[in-house]
Design a protein around this nucleic acid. Structure first.
Length: 397
RNA sequence: GGCGAGGUAGCGAAGCGGUCAAACGCAGCAGACUGUAAAUCUGUCGCCCUAGCGGCUUCGAAGGUUCGAGUCCUUCCCUCGCCA
C-alpha cells in the first residue's frame, strides 16, 4: 500500500459533464466511473480476474453485510478487506444506509442510529453513524460512506425533511468520528487504511428545496466527496433526473459526485450530463443472473423462445469474451438448463457493456463531444422503445 | 393363470357424490429487477372468444345409478408388484 492520499481532479469538461481522475490509496480511477457491486466482498458471478480483465477500477462493498458476516474484526485480523478478498484496486464501502431501505421490515430507527434484526439469524445489532465509520475503518476501504437513511418513495415532504435532517446530524457525527480516528487511536478500532476518504450523502426525497438544504448542510462538513442517495427507489425517471440536476448544482466542483445505486445505461448518460462522476448499480449483475442482457440494441431476455436457434452473439457489436465466443442459442440453453456458466457469462457481458459505455462517455467528454454522444444514445433508446427491440430475429444490421 | 395396487391436463401427483377445467410441484411461456436477504420474484399455463363468477370438450374405454360422477356400480382394455 503506497499510502497515497485521496485526490480528485477534473481533466476535461463538456457542458456539465466532467472527466477526471480520482486517486486513492489503492490506485487511480478514471471518472465518470462505474463500480460493480460486491456486497459481500464478491461480485456475484465474476472472479476478480474477470473484473480486472474488464478494466474494473473500483469495487463497491457493504458495511452491514460484512459486519454481520464474517465480521469486521475478522477482516481486520486478516489484514483488511483488500487483502482478505484479494482485490488490489480501490474499494468503496456503503455504510448500511441502503439496508435501512431494503430491510425496512427488520429495523427500527431513531436519533441514535438503526437497530437491525439480522436477516441471517435474527440477532439484534445497533448501527450508529460512529459504528458504521468504525467498521469501515477496520475494513480499510478507500472510500467510506457516512450512515444515512435511504428514504422510501413516496414520502411526504414533512417525512422527507425530518429524515433528511437526521441524516445531516448523522453526517456530522460520522465526520467527527472519522476525524477522531485520523488523529489518534480509538479504543478497539483498528484503522486499516490511514488515507481512507469519507463521502457524505445528500438526501431529501424528491423535493428540490430539501435537496438543496441537504447538499449545503452536508458540504459544510468538508467531506472528500459527495453522494446523492435516496434515488431510483421507485420514483419516475424524469423526477430522478430533475433531482440529480438540481442537487448536483449545489455540490462543489472540485469533489467527486457519486449517484448511488443508479442505474440503467440511459440513467448513467443522463446523470453524467448533470455532472455526476461515479456510479454503482446491481442491474448489470443481477439482471445477468436473471437472464437479461444489455446490448447496443436494447435489453434482451435470453430465455425467450425467439433466441432458441439464434446463432448470433448477444450483441454483435460487443467484443467481450461472451460475445466473441458464444451464441444466443447456447446462452439460452445454458440459462434454461440452470448451468452456472449462464450466470457468469451473462454477468461478464453486462459488466463489459457498462464499463464500455463509461469508456465511451469518458472519450466523448475528452473530445468535447459529449452532448452529441448523449443525443445519439437517447435516439437509439427511443428507437428501441418504439419496437425494434421486439423483433430481433429479423434485424440483421 | 391367481392375488394385490393402479390408470387424472406435457411430466409427477392431489382429489374419494355437488362452486372441479380439476390443488400442488416440475417443465413450458412471458414479465419485473436501479447504494443485492435476489442463480430471485410475479403472472400465465385444456380449447375458443366480445376475456367473463363466458362458451366448449376433459380425468383409460363403453355402459349404468343419480337432480348431479374425476369421485358409486358393471364390463372391457392397459400398466406395475407378488405368487404360480
Amino acid at each position: 500500500m503506497s499510502s497515497q492520499p485521496f485526490r480528485f481532479r477534473v481533466t476535461h469538461t463538456s457542458g456539465h459533464a466532467r472527466r477526471g481522475v480520482m486517486s486513492t490509496p489503492h490506485g487511480e480511477v478514471d471518472t465518470p466511473a462505474f463500480m460493480p457491486v460486491g456486497t459481500q466482498g464478491a461480485v456475484k458471478g465474476a472472479t476478480h480476474r474477470d473484473l480486472e480483465s474488464l478494466g474494473v477500477q473500483m469495487l463497491l462493498s457493504n458495511t452491514y453485510h460484512l459486519f454481520l458476516r464474517p465480521g469486521d474484526d475478522l477482516i481486520a485480523r486478516q489484514g483488511g478487506l483488500h487483502r482478505f478478498i484479494g482485490w488490489k484496486r480501490p474499494i468503496l464501502t456503503d455504510s448500511g444506509g441502503y439496508q435501512v431501505f431494503s430491510l425496512s421490515a427488520r429495523r427500527t430507527i431513531d436519533e441514535l442510529g438503526v437497530r437491525f434484526q439480522s436477516h441471517l439469524d435474527g440477532s439484534s445489532h445497533l448501527l450508529t453513524p460512529e459504528k458504521a465509520t468504525d467498521i469501515q475503518a477496520q475494513l480499510g476501504s478507500d472510500i467510506a460512506m457516512v450512515l444515512d437513511e435511504c428514504l422510501a418513495y413516496p414520502a411526504t415532504i414533512d417525512a422527507a425533511r425530518q429524515s433528511m435532517e437526521r441524516t445531516l446530524r448523522w453526517a456530522r457525527r460520522a465526520r467527527e468520528r472519522m476525524c477522531q480516528l485520523r488523529e489518534h487511536p480509538v479504543d478497539g478500532v483498528r484503522v486499516m487504511n490511514e488515507r481512507q476518504a469519507q463521502f457524505g450523502i445528500v438526501q431529501g426525497g424528491v423535493f428540490p428545496e430539501l435537496r438543496e438544504a441537504s447538499a449545503l448542510g452536508t458540504v459544510a462538513n468538508g467531506f472528500e466527496g459527495y453522494a446523492i442517495g435516496g434515488l431510483s427507489v421507485g420514483e419516475a425517471t424524469d423526477i430522478m433526473y430533475e433531482i440529480v440536476e438540481r442537487t448536483s448544482a449545489f455540490l462543489p466542483a472540485d469533489r467527486p459526485r457519486y449517484l448511488m445505486g443508479a442505474g440503467t445505461p440511459g440513467d448513467l448518460v443522463e446523470a453524467v450530463s448533470k455532472g455526476i462522476d461515479m456510479f454503482d448499480c446491481v442491474l448489470p449483475t443481477r439482471n445477468a443472473r436473471n437472464g437479461q442482457l444489455f446490448t447496443s440494441d436494447g435489453r434482451i431476455n435470453i430465455k425467450n423462445r425467439r433466441y432458441a436457434e439464434d446463432a448470433r452473439p448477444p450483441d454483435p457489436q460487443c467484443d467481450c469474451y461472451t460475445c466473441l465466443n458464444y451464441s444466443r442459442a447456447y446462452l439460452r440453453h445454458l440459462f434454461l438448463a440452470g448451468e452456472i456458466n449462464a450466470a457468469s457469462l451473462n454477468t461478464l457481458h453486462n459488466l463489459h457493456f457498462y464499463l464500455d459505455t463509461l469508456r465511451r462517455i469518458r472519450d466523448a467528454i475528452a473530445f468535447q463531444r459529449f452532448e452529441s454522444f448523449r443525443l445519439a444514445f437517447h435516439q437509439r433508446s427511443s428507437r428501441q422503445a418504439s419496437g425494434a427491440r421486439g423483433a430481433p430475429e429479423h434485424e440483421d444490421s
